[in-house]
Nucleic acid binder design. Structure first.
Lengths: 205, 205, 205, 205
DNA sequence: AATGAATGAGCTTTCATTCAT
DNA sequence: AATGAATGAAAGCTCATTCAT
């Protein structure tokens, strides 16, 4: 009875956990990680700051949950792109574009996933960060496959070439998100050029 | 004489300004920008927090002084590298290596120069950030020269190709500083590979 | 029972809100508004400065709560005085004396209510200040009633005459509170004289 | 030579003292006493904060200099008004209007002269405040003269009646300066009404 | 599961004032 | 006469977190 009359209550239980994560993402896009505070999250999610601690041990733990989630999403996106193509060169191209797209479309995930310094966060589970390498591994595997079948030519160990490719993609994404790239240059043309330049050395012509 | 005998006194006057900047850099390397506080700087520099305000209008102004200084240093390093080589390809290679070296050797400058989101800093002089483009221009000029004399082949406008090159270098530097690159891969080998891969597309063979 | 035996504990909860308001009043009497600080209030109320923010959004909000409270109290006092008399002249006399009495008895309320410059306070709700006029309205109504029944003779619009009367009463209260009136003159005699002189022009003989 | 080329230097010596006082007045009008700071005064007067201390022992001393100056100016204005009229009633009316005019025209002087609580200012010379009474004395003398020649009828000791008159005038001025009077009422009409009402009881018809 | 209350530590910044020059 | 340098104290306010309920 009271419920029927009450104002639409904020989520509770598992829903609240989900809601907290989503509102945190929203705040991250808007204000960035530094401006994130438990109070603001609580206010945004419509719960008390204390309630957040029912679902996350600490602010760091909340951040890590987001990182994990982001890593999973990125991995899913990348494997999807990987699967859609046959040739190693096609896979590398698709992986690169999917990575960039993910970063630009999910600035909040990208910020916590790749712009944070884990060693500056207390109590961080190194394990979580090691999972990030699964993503680089996708690049490496496609590259190794290409080298194996002669369609690609990595000028060195595939591990290294894949890492280099990743750093290049990351540089594009992070400077784009920070809006540090000349506006006359930024845009789809830049992304195309970046993918082409990044893959050129790998003989993906 | 008295000086020689006196205990190492905290600097004063213009020296203090210099000392504040240096201690700020030290703290930036150790703890990062977010953890930077006027109190900590003061404690580190051996002066009162109030004294910092004699030399800098605000925390932002102090940060901007560092950014300016870093931009100048980077520019000097890059022009030095540029001048030491004759061929456009040689210049591009030297510029790239100098950029990476500067970033890895000056993590504190690099952090405030390129890891901060200017739009999230109040009262920042857009002018300062525009100076950053002077550095990209060095890459573009070398590239354009190479295209002009036929020794290089940018697959598109030199502006775009230079920006792409910059993002690739930045990605390498920022992920290296964040220690996010697999330790089995990191090192001089990685840098070599990165430079080679980044320049491959520009026909700098 | 436990209560009776326990040491005088600092209040908590809603009691703390009340306690904060009361200690703020005490500090206002002692030191004035300018010397008021959140830390001092906290120390006086026996809570942390942070706790004050659980009950009031800001220092201004705390001040405004006091202003509101004071306005209510004054209004209650004035309507009480108004109701106790039949004739317009009697009402005006009672209103005037009640106003003066309230001011002299509640210097802390009076200070925030009438000695502050609202335009110098950020985020002040103009609404709160408009409520002050309800009090002047009581004077105006009594005066208008007297003019209507011929027992009083306002030399002009009742609005104006009532405002003038108010300013006269305020002048007496504020200079008395500031102890700026010659001690040989101050006292009940002065109040009597002030009321008599202030009402003389209104034909309240 | 250097002088001829140099930018217009700020005043020095006695001129600087004068300049400090004037800039302080300007700041008082703009921001009020609470917002007054030595640094702001120095910045406004174009000298160093330290220089202020060459001319005034402390912030309080500077304030007291202003109070003294204001008291002198008010006294001059009042005696001028007093002298221009023959009859006691005329003198009282002129004194009242001159007082109001002075207050409204010199909000900065009025604020430090009459809105400050001397007991809250450290090291204040009680003497300075006693001089304020000279002004009330002018009212009292005119009133006493009127009583003596039968043209006025103070309902009690002239001292008291004069003080009451002063408090009424002060109430009008202070509430006007604080912009606390209903705008539909404020204006010359209000001043006229206030003078008329204030003098009515003194038989100045 | 959820919360209101509470706090100590911390933040940037401004203050009046002093001192050596 | 004038100043730049320096400071301790204090301001309002926000932070992540804990605890009792």
């Amino acid at each position: 009875m009271a419920d029927a009359l009450s104002v639409p209550r904020a989520e509770t239980g598992a829903d609240l956990r989900r809601s907290i994560l989503d509102h945190t993402r929203r705040l991250l896009v808007a204000d960035g990680y530094d401006a994130l505070s438990m109070r603001k999250i609580a206010a945004s999610a419509g719960c008390s700051a204390t309630s957040i601690y029912l679902h996350f041990d600490s602010k760091d733990a909340l951040t890590h949950a987001l990182i994990s989630e982001g890593m999973d999403r990125l991995h899913r996106v990348l494997t999807g792109a990987d699967d859609e193509h046959e040739t190693p060169a096609g896979r590398l191209d698709a992986l690169s574009r999917a990575y960039i797209r993910f970063g630009l479309d999910n600035p909040e995930y990208y910020e916590v996933m790749f712009q944070l310094r884990p060693e500056r966060m207390a109590r961080y589970p190194a394990e979580d960060y090691r999972r990030a390498h699964r993503n680089v591994d996708l690049f490496r595997d496609a590259l190794a496959d290409g080298v194996a079948d002669g369609s690609l030519a990595a000028p060195g160990p595939p591990d290294v070439a894949a890492s280099v490719l990743w750093t290049a993609l990351h540089g594009l994404v992070s400077l784009s998100l920070a809006r540090r790239i000349d506006v006359r240059v930024a845009g789809d043309e830049l992304i195309d050029a970046a993918v082409r330049q990044s893959l050129a050395a790998l003989g993906a012509a």
